[in-house]
Simulated scan of single mutants.
Amino acid sequence: MTSKKSKRISIDIGISESNREKIAEGLSNLLADSYTLYMMTHNFHWNVKGPQFNTLHTMFMTQYTEQWAALDVIAERIRALGYPAPGTYSEFIKRASIKEVNGVPKAEDMIRHLVKAQEATAKTARKLFPVVDASNDQPTADVLTQRIDVHEKTAWMLRSLLEE
């Protein structure tokens, strides 16, 4: 039996391998936060109850649907940089800055958890800008800008539900 070696084709896109690795690492952390946020939002969509049920159920569905689409964008950028995208719960748990919520919180607490998770995901994306800027990596900067915009806007909308 002959051994088949994996043949790696070099990537020459104007970003050093070292910086591509740093960017892929940061994007992997963003993917972990994004997936954890997706799961939290979907869980709350299934389990919300109370006077705001219809509003929150619908809002959470809009949010987790948008989040689901973003996962692919982030993972594909990691792949375009030449690295494998993480895709297991254990990897996401290790990388995520967002912690799982145990049990089923009350609706208002769900909103508070989601505000924190949206803000945490925005911060994870923002941390990556120095290496992205230094690498002149506009495609990743575009992904990060779009994700930060969505997370900050969503956090604002959720916070608005808590204000009087």
Score class of each variant (00 low, 15 high):
Leu162Ala: 11
Gln138Ser: 12
Thr140His: 05
Ile11Gln: 08
Thr62Leu: 06
Leu37Pro: 04
His42Asp: 00
Thr55Ala: 07
Asn136Lys: 14
His57Ala: 02
Asn19Met: 02
Ala32Thr: 09
Tyr89Pro: 07
Ile148Glu: 05
Glu76Met: 00
Ser10Tyr: 08
Glu21His: 10
Val132Ser: 06
Leu27Asp: 04
Trp46His: 06
Pro51Lys: 11
Ile78Leu: 06
Ala120Gly: 13
Ala75Asn: 10
Thr124Asn: 10
Ile148Trp: 02
Ala117Lys: 13
Ser16Phe: 03
Ala125Phe: 04
Ser97His: 13
Leu158Val: 08
Gln67Ile: 14
Thr55Trp: 01
Leu30Pro: 05
Lys49Arg: 09
Pro130Tyr: 02
Glu21Pro: 00
Ala32Leu: 12
Val131Trp: 03
Tyr64Ala: 03
Glu21Val: 04
Glu91Pro: 00
Ser6Asn: 05
Ala155Lys: 13
Ser34Glu: 14
Val48Gln: 05
Gly103Gln: 10
Ala134Asn: 12
Leu31Tyr: 07
Glu17Arg: 04
Leu37Trp: 04
Gln52Thr: 03
Leu56Asn: 00
Lys153Asp: 13
Glu17Asp: 10
Ser6Ala: 08
Arg8Pro: 05
Ser160Ala: 15
Arg77Asn: 02
Ala80Asp: 03
Leu161Ser: 05
Leu71Thr: 12
Glu108Gly: 00
Thr124Gln: 15
Glu100Lys: 11
Phe53Gly: 01
Glu76Lys: 01
Ser28Leu: 09
Leu27Trp: 05
Ser90Asn: 12
Glu119Ile: 15
Ile93Phe: 09
Ser135Pro: 07
Arg95Met: 15
Leu114Lys: 07
Thr145Leu: 04
Trp46Glu: 06
Leu158Gly: 07
Thr154Arg: 15
Glu108Lys: 11
Ser160Leu: 04
Glu66Gly: 10
Glu108Ala: 08
